[in-house]
C-alpha cells in the first residue's frame, strides 16, 4: 500500500518546499525520508552539498537511503529524466508500491532555462509512476524569478511547517515549455567566428572541427554528434534556408536555425520520441550529451543553441 498524500493512486506526486532556514528544511525533508525508509520504500536523495550534510546528520546511520551525486545525477535536464526513469523502473520491477525522491536541481541563473524545462517536463515524464518527489529550494539563495518558475511547475506545495496543499499557482507544463521556447536567444559575447548557409551535416561537422574548439575529446565528439543530428533535423523537419553559426572562446556555442516553426511537441528533446519512428531522437540525444541545449522559436524561425566547455 502506497503511503502519503498520493495513497490510493498510481500517479506521480510532485511537490516542493520553499524554505528559508536549515531547520525548516530538516523539519520537512527528514521525516519524509525517515518515513519512506520505515515503510520500505526506496528513497533517493540528490541534494546540494550543504543540504546533503544536514540531512545525513539528521538520519540514523545506515538508514537505507540511496544518496546520488547531485553533479552526476543532474548533469543535463534530459539525462536526469532518463536516469531517474531507469532507477524507478528497476525499483518497480522489484514490486515496491512507491519510490520517494528528494532533490534540488542546479539553479544558477545561466543554466536555469534548462532546469525549468526539467521541472515542467517531469510532471509528464513520471506521470504514470507511483513516485513521490519532494523538491527543496532555499529562498535565501534562490533568485525571485527562479522561485516564480518553481511555483509554476510544482502541482503540490509543502509549507515549512509540513502542511501539504495543492498549488493554485501550478501552470500546465506544456504552457511553461512553449513559453520557454519563445524566450529570445541570449546575446553572444561577440560576432560569430563562422556562419554557414545551408550546410550539409558533414559540412557543419567539418567546420566545427576546423575551428579547433578548446574542448576535451569527449566534449568535442559529443558536440560534433549533436550538431550533425540537429542540422540533419533542420533539413528533414525544418524549413530551409538553414544557417549554422559558431562562437569559440572559453566556451563553444553553436546555433542551428531554420525558418520553420520548430517541433510541435513541447517535450521535444527532453523525452525520447519513440512513437514516431526516430524523429526527435537526434534532438533528444543532443540534450543527453551536451550540457546546455536550448530551443528558441521566434520571428526568424527556430533555433537550437548548444554550448560546450566550462560552465
Amino acid at each position: 500500500m502506497r503511503a502519503g498524500p498520493a495513497s490510493g493512486t498510481d500517479r506521480y506526486h510532485h511537490e516542493v518546499v520553499l524554505h528559508g532556514a536549515d531547520e525548516e528544511f530538516l523539519a520537512v525533508v527528514a521525516p519524509f525520508v525517515r518515513e519512506g525508509v520505515a515503510a520500505g520504500e526506496p528513497t533517493i536523495v540528490a541534494l546540494a552539498e550543504h543540504e546533503s550534510a544536514l540531512l545525513r546528520r539528521a538520519l540514523p546511520r545506515g538508514a537505507g537511503v540511496s544518496w546520488l551525486s547531485r553533479a552526476e545525477q543532474y548533469r543535463t535536464p534530459a539525462s536526469a529524466i532518463r536516469t531517474y526513469r531507469e532507477q524507478f523502473a528497476e525499483a518497480f520491477r522489484a514490486g515496491v508500491p512507491q519510490v520517494r525522491l528528494v532533490g534540488n536541481v542546479p539553479h544558477h541563473v545561466a543554466a536555469w532555462s534548462g532546469w525549468v524545462r526539467y521541472e515542467a517536463a517531469v510532471n509528464q515524464a513520471f506521470a504514470a509512476l507511483p513516485v513521490w518527489s519532494l523538491c527543496s529550494y532555499d529562498t535565501r539563495v534562490t533568485p525571485r524569478a527562479i522561485i516564480d518558475d518553481v511555483v509554476r511547475t510544482h502541482p503540490h506545495l509543502v509549507g515549512p511547517d509540513g502542511t501539504r496543499r495543492p498549488n493554485p499557482g501550478f501552470v500546465d507544463p506544456e504552457e511553461v515549455l512553449t513559453e520557454r521556447m519563445r524566450a529570445p536567444l541570449p546575446a553572444e559575447p561577440g560576432p560569430a567566428v563562422l556562419v554557414l548557409d545551408d550546410p550539409s551535416p558533414a559540412a557543419a561537422r567539418h567546420a566545427l572541427l576546423g575551428t579547433a574548439p578548446l574542448l576535451d575529446r569527449d566534449e568535442l565528439e559529443d558536440l560534433v554528434l549533436a550538431l550533425s543530428e540537429v542540422v540533419d533535423n533542420a533539413w528533414v523537419h525544418g524549413v530551409p534556408p538553414v544557417r549554422v553559426a559558431l562562437w569559440t572562446g572559453e566556451r563553444t556555442v553553436v546555433t542551428v536555425t531554420d525558418t520553420g516553426p520548430g517541433p510541435s511537441d513541447p517535450y521535444a528533446g527532453l523525452l525520447p520520441a519513440k512513437g514516431s519512428a526516430t524523429a526527435g531522437l537526434g534532438l533528444w540525444m543532443a540534450h543527453q550529451l551536451d550540457r546546455e541545449v536550448t530551443l528558441h522559436r521566434g520571428a526568424g524561425g527556430f533555433t537550437v543553441r548548444m554550448t560546450a566547455g566550462p560552465s
Partner: peptide
C-alpha cells in the same frame, strides 16, 4: 570505435 559511439549506444 570513437568513444561517442559507445555513449550513443548506451543512450539508445
Amino acid at each position: 570505435a570513437p568513444a561517442v559511439v559507445g555513449r550513443m549506444a548506451a543512450l539508445l
